[in-house]
Design a protein around this nucleic acid. Structure first.
Length: 555
RNA sequence: UGUCCUAUAGUAUAAUGGUAGUACAUCUGAUUUUGGUUCAGACUGUCUAGGUUCGAAUCCUGGUAGGACAACCA
């Protein structure tokens, strides 16, 4: 119940509006994705913001697809977007589409033509661009700027009827060609696209531009707070101008800084490239910063919401350290994920003084952080697999694991002492030999031995074989987008390591896709949707914090 | 060299004219049958120069730096 966090600047605006009785204290936000790609963690920030604002102030949030460009949009994206928002834990008041308003927006355009504030321009895209001038020189306009209202009305109607080809004509607002704001220099309102729309089919061949659809849609829905990202700041005067000239409900636009994350890219264009050029397996590849990728990677909705809460909201450009995201998922999984033993890079360990035909059932805690998680049993025998990195032939001083003469605790079992090992012709260790202390069994240790290290293991005869996919950051550099040349040349070639034969506790054979575990000392893992009856596949969500790895790196 | 936005520790984010705080990251130490967790501690900051004020991160002015804007994309 401790709501100690101070208000972010948008919450302050909303609270002021409520205090001043703006809109009668009503709060209605919207989340307006364009259905031309999958949602990513940056969208999650916007979703948490828009839905969060409404939740906090007894308001509602509409889901509105900004589907004004039929050539890039698709129902596949609509479906994935809806699924992702719901998975994140948010419910929209209404599912709406800008295309629902095409007739209304068309009428708005006619209204502006009649007021002498819009005209049909026959110029080419190049001609229009040139006639707009530059940020430092005013625009000159085109010869079509002074057509009569009647002619504009006629032409616009014929545009709708399909009498013209793509690009032949556009409808433009009559703004201010000398404005220092380029968006006010006669922005295009409608363009001709003889294209099939995912919802309106072939009903239309003219489509409104963002600037003549977004604010209008906001207004039609009576959105009170229209929250978008910084790049729309220069559009705001135009947003307000249209609303004022049309005399419609005055929605207000507010802007915040989009999320940037280290070691990844966030633009839909770049993500699409990664997918199309097969640098990843798809939009939901666990290395992708998409919601579907993070879900498959093992991230939880709560962890993503916690992340969005921690990063805050402001108007300055930012670059969030991906370690914060990792912290958020570890924080949750530490409390909720059951611990299991899995050996990813196995080497055989034989306990020479343990009876070869004996099998003991060892008791293990499922989760020391959760007293209600219970215990399970594990088969123990004289031949085990342990992690190859847990043995060193010539261990340095601070190596608290196994080596010749070193003692170590086998988690949930006995203390053992390294005795010897065998190597193959290439010098790789093939088998390690150790002896155990019979009186050192977990829970009943009477040896008084003080061992510094504990390692995990599985019994060779009882182990199940699974596939494990180890993911690392997708890019080698913090900000691939700002580096020289093609961002794809900074892709991390080691972002995926597949281990097709890892040994795990037999119980994991029953694990279902989406189930999460902590592989003791190795990290958090999630069962992948690629799992079959023959082979269970685990994705590594994130490693555990590893202070030994840091120590070892120091040399 | 136009207009707009922004500037607080390595990264984010508070302090709303009155003790610059929090988180992540980094580093110590303690505890630990996970080199995990937990706990204790350390480190590092108001872009700059003036001004207003008893008092400025906060208000004003001038610099500087970063970002956005000239798509028939959103």
């Amino acid at each position: 119940m401790s709501e100690e966090r101070t208000l972010n600047f948008l919450e302050q605006i909303v609270e002021e509006d409520i205090a001043n009785g703006v809109n009668g204290g009503r709060v209605l936000t919207r989340f307006p994705p364009e259905p031309n790609g999958y949602l990513h963690i940056g969208h999650a920030k916007s979703i948490c913001l828009n839905f969060g604002l409404a939740q906090k102030y007894n308001g509602k949030t509409n889901l509105r697809f900004d589907d004004t460009n039929p050539v890039t949009e698709d129902t596949e994206y609509v479906d994935s977007i809806k699924a992702d928002i719901q998975w994140l834990g948010f419910n929209w008041a209404q599912e709406l589409y800008a295309s629902d308003y095409f007739e209304q927006i068309y009428n708005f355009a006619v209204q502006l033509i009649k007021k002498g504030l819009a005209y049909v321009d026959d110029s080419t895209a190049e001609e229009i661009a040139i006639s707009k001038g530059t940020p430092t020189e005013p625009g000159k306009g085109t010869p079509y700027r002074n057509r009569s209202v009647a002619e504009n009305l006629d032409l616009f109607e014929r545009m709708r009827k399909g009498e013209f080809k793509d690009g032949e004509k556009v409808l433009r607002a009559k703004g201010d060609l000398a404005s220092p704001n380029m968006h006010m220099r006669d922005p295009i309102m409608y363009r001709i696209k003889h294209a099939h729309h995912h919802r309106t089919g072939d009903n239309w061949c003219i489509y409104p531009m963002y600037d003549f659809a977004h604010g209008q849609s906001d207004s039609i829905e009576n959105i009170t707070h229209s929250v978008c990202t910084l790049e729309f700041i220069p559009h705001r005067p135009l947003y307000n101008w249209f609303i004022e000239q049309l005399g419609i409900f005055p929605s207000h636009q507010y802007e915040f800084a989009r999320l940037n994350l280290t070691y990844t890219v966030m633009s839909k264009r770049k993500l699409l490239q990664l997918v199309n050029e097969k640098h990843v397996t798809g939009w939901d590849d666990p290395r992708m910063p998409t919601i579907s990728g993070l879900r498959r990677r093992g991230y939880t909705p709560a962890s993503i919401r916690a992340f969005c809460e921690r990063i805050g909201v402001q108007k300055r450009d930012n670059m969030i350290d991906v370690s914060l995201l990792e912290f958020c998922i570890r924080e949750e999984l530490n409390k909720t994920a059951n611990r299991v033993m899995a050996v990813l890079d196995p080497v055989k360990l034989v306990i020479t003084n343990y009876p070869a035909d004996q099998v003991e059932e060892m008791t293990a805690e499922n989760n020391p952080e959760d007293p209600n998680s219970g215990t399970r049993t594990l088969p123990f025998s004289n031949t085990l697999y342990i992690e190859r990195e847990d043995f060193m032939e010539e261990p340095p001083k601070k190596f608290f694991r196994l080596g010749p003469g070193l003692v170590v605790r086998l988690k949930n079992a006995y203390i053992i002492k390294g005795e010897g090992f065998e190597k193959d012709a290439d010098g790789n260790i093939t088998t390690i030999y150790a002896t155990y202390f019979p009186e050192s069994k977990s829970g009943g240790d009477t040896t008084g031995l003080n061992v510094k290290g504990t390692i995990h293991w599985v019994s060779a005869a009882h182990a199940a074989t699974v596939e494990v996919r180890l993911y690392d950051r997708l890019f080698k550099v913090e900000d691939p987008g700002s580096e020289e040349g093609d961002f794809k040349s900074y892709i991390n070639p080691d972002s995926l390591q597949v281990i097709s034969n890892a040994y795990v506790e037999p119980s994991l054979l029953k694990a279902k896709p989406g189930e999460r575990f902590q592989f003791l000392r190795k990290g958090y893992f999630c069962v992948d949707t690629d799992s079959t009856a023959e082979k269970v596949v685990f994705n590594r969500t994130v490693t555990l914090k590893d202070t030994w790895a840091k120590e070892a790196k120091k040399g």
